Measured scan of single mutants.
Amino acid sequence: RDEDEKEKIKEALKRGNEDKAKEIAKRANVSPEEYERLRKEAE
């Protein structure tokens, strides 16, 4: 379940949809550090 959320965040970031990614991260309680890591992976 947690991994699904992280995949959704990465997908949103790949599409350049940072607002959606942040919204998912907030809902999934993803830490800022984890969010940054996902953002780097998505580049």
Rank of each mutant, 00 (worst) to 15 (best):
K14C: 07
A21P: 01
G16W: 01
E5R: 07
K14N: 07
E11P: 03
K10N: 03
R27N: 11
E18P: 08
D19W: 04
I9E: 02
L13D: 03
Y35H: 02
L38I: 13
K40Y: 08
K22L: 13
E36A: 03
P32S: 11
K10L: 10
D4H: 11
A25F: 00
E5P: 15
V30W: 04
V30C: 06
Y35V: 07
K6E: 08
E33H: 05
N17F: 14
E33S: 06
R27G: 09
N17Q: 14
K20N: 08
Y35R: 02
K6N: 09
E5V: 15
K10R: 06
K22M: 14
E18N: 08
A21E: 01
D2P: 13
R15K: 14
E34S: 01
L38R: 00
K8H: 08
L13W: 00
L13F: 06
E11T: 05
K6L: 15
E3T: 14
N17Y: 12
K20F: 13
A42S: 08
K40A: 13
Y35G: 02
E43Q: 12
I9P: 02
N29W: 02
L38W: 02
L13C: 04
E11I: 06
E11S: 07
E34I: 03
L38G: 01
K10I: 10
A25W: 00
I24D: 03
D2F: 15
E41L: 09
E33K: 04
E5K: 08
R39K: 14
E18G: 07
E11M: 04
A28K: 06
E3L: 14
N29I: 05
L38A: 03
K14R: 14
E7V: 12
E7K: 13
K20R: 12
N17L: 14
N29D: 09
A25I: 02
K26H: 10
E33G: 06
R37G: 07
E33D: 12
E33F: 01
I24Y: 00
E36Q: 04
A42M: 10
R39M: 10
Y35P: 00
S31D: 10
E36L: 03
E11Y: 00
K8N: 09
K14T: 08
R27M: 07
A25P: 01
K22V: 09
K6F: 14
D2A: 12
E43F: 13
E43H: 10
R15G: 15
E43Y: 12
I24K: 02
A12G: 03
E7L: 14
K20M: 15
K14H: 09
E5Y: 15
N17R: 07
